[in-house]
Design a protein around this nucleic acid. Structure first.
Lengths: 249, 249
DNA sequence: TTCCGGCATTTCAATAGGTTAACGAGCCGC
DNA sequence: GCGGCTCGTTAACCTATTGAAATGCCGGAA
């Protein structure tokens, strides 16, 4: 199912815009990145493992369209989604330095991505300073998000967890132009959502009902609509600090 | 209380050994790092904030002795410790790229650390390739640990959580020579432990009693002793993959 | 059209973990 | 030596969340 693709579709533009928001890029950097992306386009269907825990890594992937998630599984099957990877985001900016990877990456939807081989990537980093900084910021941002997930999983109540996740995803989709008014695509099952928030499917479902009942959100046909973002944020005890990198957007 | 220090004490050696385990360092890199460390030694007492959420950052800190923790707090006071920082580890390898930091860093014990100013650090990175890679690995390892904490907080049961934390800390102290047989220093209060595992203090206490009762651990006078590491790991559903960087130790 | 599998939903009983409160030990300043 | 702190511990009670199981919906394959 995974296949090389030759279509472009201007998708690279959104990626570049987001990178630019992370860190100002020089014109040369933009050109070089764009070229590298267009040279290695691939597609994958939904439910495919791009990376499995324990794999060695030798390239960097940038997502042009579609959702993926990082996850880990315990021996007995309990699964935790530790993060989502959204369009414009990077899978493993420097992970080739590690011998093997500690988690799996699976597509939640059909995905288009660009793959840059390690050697090529390192050359890019060496020649384009602003690009190297942008990828560094990408990694740091990832880190910050991961920390916020820790407090989400450890200290927030069920309703707050789910509300917080909705707020975060919405804010992360914004800089790539994937929010439309107060709604955005939200193509994951409730089982995935449960595994991302550390809840059981049953309780996650109840929690979503509750969010619907209070009129905070609508979630239907894979589309999330947030009636009142401020109200949702307040219900989630959401603090925007950790996504500050996007401030320039 | 925070004060510049001029004592050396050979502490830098442990740091260097650990870095070397992360990534092989050239002799020049070792020398340069050692010098940078010795030029900026500081001390802090217990319970001091080295970094507060929202601060701008303009230096890198390497811990020579003592424990710290990263934490975030919700408006209503709920707190989550998102990670510990142990001797030999680095506070914020590249964080100066971000405008402000998303979490606080507080000392749990008296701490000795080296502070390297941004300009100095960047020069080091530019001139010593192996050192730059080592710091990169440090950041990636941090990331991996953070992901493991996500599954710990989201999917493990109380006993597993605490057991897992014990295993992880033990394994992280090992490469810096801070484990002595089957025990190591463990200088944090049960309240801290509760905030690290996402439990209430009361339940954390109950859980520790249980671990004691089953003979898996002893925790007395700030010292943790692990009777049977394999048994503890198995109780924790511990998988060592995510700390693989230390494999060479 | 029919069957099937994935997904959302609901119900109900069971429980892991939270909350509140109280007590004792050790330690510090006075 | 006396309060007043922090920290660990225990008890009793309570609830948020889990787990198992059944139902209905929908879209795809035959």
């Amino acid at each position: 199912m995974r296949s090389q693709s030759t279509t472009d579709g201007g998708l690279a533009q959104a990626v570049i815009r987001r990178f630019h928001a992370l860190r100002p890029l020089s014109d040369e950097a933009v050109g070089a990145l764009e070229q590298a992306i267009l040279e290695g386009l691939f597609r994958a269907g939904p439910g495919e493992d791009l990376v499995a825990e324990g794999d060695p890594i030798d390239s960097v992937r940038i997502v042009l369209s579609g959702w993926l998630y990082r996850h880990k599984t315990l021996e007995d099957g309990r699964r935790q989604i530790v993060n989502f990877i959204l369009p414009g985001e990077t899978c493993d900016a420097h992970a080739y330095l590690l011998s093997t990877i500690d988690h799996s990456i699976t597509t939640a939807t059909p995905v288009t991505y660009a793959e840059i081989k390690r050697a090529r990537f390192e050359k890019l980093m060496a020649s384009e300073r602003t690009l190297a900084e942008a990828f560094m910021c990408e990694t740091l941002l990832n880190n910050a998000i991961q920390r916020e997930w820790a407090i989400n999983l450890g200290r927030r109540a069920a309703l707050e967890k789910v509300a917080h996740l909705f707020c975060e995803i919405y804010e992360r989709l914004r800089p790539v132009g994937l929010v439309d008014g107060n709604s955005c695509s939200f193509p994951v099952t409730q089982m995935d959502l449960a595994d991302a928030t550390g809840l059981s499917v049953v309780h996650l479902n109840r929690t979503i009902q509750e969010l619907r009942a209070t009129g905070l959100i609508t979630l239907r046909e894979r589309t999330l609509t947030i009636a009142d973002l401020d109200a949702l944020k307040s219900a989630a005890l959401y603090s925007p600090n950790y996504l500050q990198l996007y401030r320039q957007v």
